[in-house]
Structure formats: structure tokens, C-alpha cells
Simulated assay, not measured.
Amino acid sequence: MATTNLFFSLTIIVLILSLSVSAADWNILLNQRKTRYGLQITLKNYCESWRMNVELHNIRDFDIVPEECVEYIGKYMTSTQYKVDSERTIDECTVYLSTSCGFKKDGSDAWIFDIDDTLLSTVPYYKKNGFGGKKSNSTALEEWMRQGKAPALEPSLRLFNQLKGLGVKIILVSSRKECLRSATVDNLVNAGYHGWTSLTLRGADDENKDVEKFKADVRKQLISGGYRIWGILGDQWSSIEGLPSAKRTFKLPNPLYYVA
């Protein structure tokens, strides 16, 4: 009888400890297991909601992906769904080009592209560095960029070539530092991007600016120079917000990091 009671007690202790460990993987909201409206939620529900609210720009200025969602975000960024979401964004750009753009074809029609996770993918880097679950290490990221091995985002490459075929001037504006110019150009060319009009990176005078202001200032200079900016494609809100803007802006999905 004593042996049975001891076994039963140990079983209860193990069960309690296991529940405590699993609960530690959930934040305070998830520990309640219900929303304020009584809906049952799962970890997948929570992480999908977190990702969606990043894209909606309700969640801002985050340093890292929540620990409990790192695995989910990693699966998303390497999934068919991420590719489909990106493809849909480019499809909407194509619809806009075919229905709403009255290009004058006088050399002043322009389109702006961001680079990282817009033209070139940093997913291979983040795959080896925790899928956003670790605080960004700019030194390590820049060293990876210098290797020039980032693959093209194929839907973006298709749009790039479509615009080039229409005679639209392609302007590249990136928050990468000027010291990465050579590696960036080589990477773009090797990934299939040819024939852009200009490439603007952050010089020493720009590094103290917010990315949003830096990119807005570049657009101001372009417009002052006579360009008509028909569209912007980027993966961060800082690439498309701020004035002056374009006639239309399009955002690709990216829950890995936030650039203000």
C-alpha cells in the first residue's frame, strides 16, 4: 500500500512539473488559454495572430520574435504560404500596372524597390540565426551580406523585369551601408537583376536618421529631379511610409524583424 501511495505521489509531481514546463512556453495571455471574449486559443492561433498584426502594423518596434513563436515564424518563412503571399503582392502590382499607370514614357516614370527581403532574401541568414528569435547582430548580418550569396525573390525579379520592359526607371533604395555597395551590386547582378537606374545606400550622413526619414528624403530628391514615382515595393513599413510617397505602395510579408 505504501509503495502504491509513493508511486501515485511521484506521478502527480511529474505531471505538475510537466505542466509547469509547458506553461513556461506560453506568455501571460496564453496561460489563460482563452481570450477576453472566451475564445479558446492555441499556440498556433496566437503566433498567427502575432504575425498578422505585424503585417497590419499594429505591432511595431519589436526587437525579437516572441520566443514561443520562433518555430512558427521559421516554418512560415520557409513555407509555400510565404511564397504564395509574396506572389499575391506582386500580382497586385501587376494589376496596378495594367489598369492604373498612364506612363508618359519620357524617361521620368519610376518605380522604387527596397533590397533586403524585397529583391534579395535574407532568409538563409536568419535560418542559421534563430529566425528572428535573437537580437539582431548587425556585424554578423553585414558580414553575411558581404558574401553576396542572398538569393533573389523570384516574384520580385519578375516584376523588376516587367517594369524594365515597360521602360520604367528602376530606383533601388536600401538602408544598407554605403560600404556594402560593391557586394550589393555583385549580389544583385548574380541573382539576375540588371539594368536599374540608380542605387542609393546609407552614407555616413544618413546613419543617424530613422530609415523612414532617410528613404523619404531620397524620394524628395527624386521627385525634385523630375521623376514620377508610380510605385514602391518594400518589406518594411519604413520603406513605404513618410512624405513624399508614391502613387501606390506595396508591402511584401516579413515578420522576421522590424526596421523603423
Rank of each mutant, 00 (worst) to 15 (best):
N5Y: 04
F8K: 15
L10R: 11
I12S: 02
V14A: 13
V14R: 01
L17Q: 05
S18F: 11
S20H: 04
A23W: 03
A24M: 10
D25L: 07
W26F: 03
L29W: 15
L29Q: 13
N31M: 15
N31W: 14
N31E: 10
Q32H: 10
R33G: 11
T35A: 06
L39F: 14
I41G: 05
I41T: 09
I41H: 09
K44R: 04
C47D: 10
E48K: 12
S49Q: 12
S49D: 12
W50I: 09
R51W: 14
M52Q: 14
M52C: 08
N53L: 15
V54F: 06
E55P: 07
H57T: 07
D61W: 10
I64C: 06
V65Q: 14
E67I: 11
C69L: 15
I73Q: 09
G74A: 02
K75D: 13
M77D: 13
M77F: 14
T78D: 14
T78W: 12
T78V: 15
T80C: 14
E87C: 05
I90T: 03
I90R: 11
D91Y: 11
E92S: 15
T94C: 05
V95T: 09
Y96T: 08
C101S: 09
F103R: 08
K105P: 03
D106H: 13
G107L: 12
S108Y: 14
W111E: 04
W111V: 14
L119Y: 08
P124H: 13
P124V: 10
Y125P: 02
K128T: 10
F131D: 11
G132F: 08
K134W: 04
S136D: 09
N137R: 04
A140T: 04
A140H: 03
L141D: 01
L141C: 01
E143W: 00
M145N: 05
R146A: 03
Q147R: 15
Q147S: 15
G148S: 02
E154H: 07
R158P: 02
F160S: 06
N161P: 07
L163E: 00
L163A: 10
L166Y: 02
G167Q: 11
V168F: 01
I170F: 09
I171E: 00
V173D: 00
A183K: 02
A183H: 00
A183E: 03
T184L: 06
D186G: 00
T197G: 06
T197K: 05
S198C: 09
T200S: 09
L201G: 02
R202H: 05
G203V: 12
D205W: 03
D205C: 11
D206A: 11
E207S: 11
N208K: 01
N208G: 07
K213Y: 07
Q221C: 13
S224L: 08
G226Q: 14
I229H: 00
I229W: 04
I229G: 02
G231N: 10
L233D: 01
S239M: 00
E241D: 07
G242N: 04
L243A: 06
T249M: 01
K251G: 03
P253C: 00
N254Q: 03
P255S: 10
Y258M: 02
V259C: 06
A260T: 02
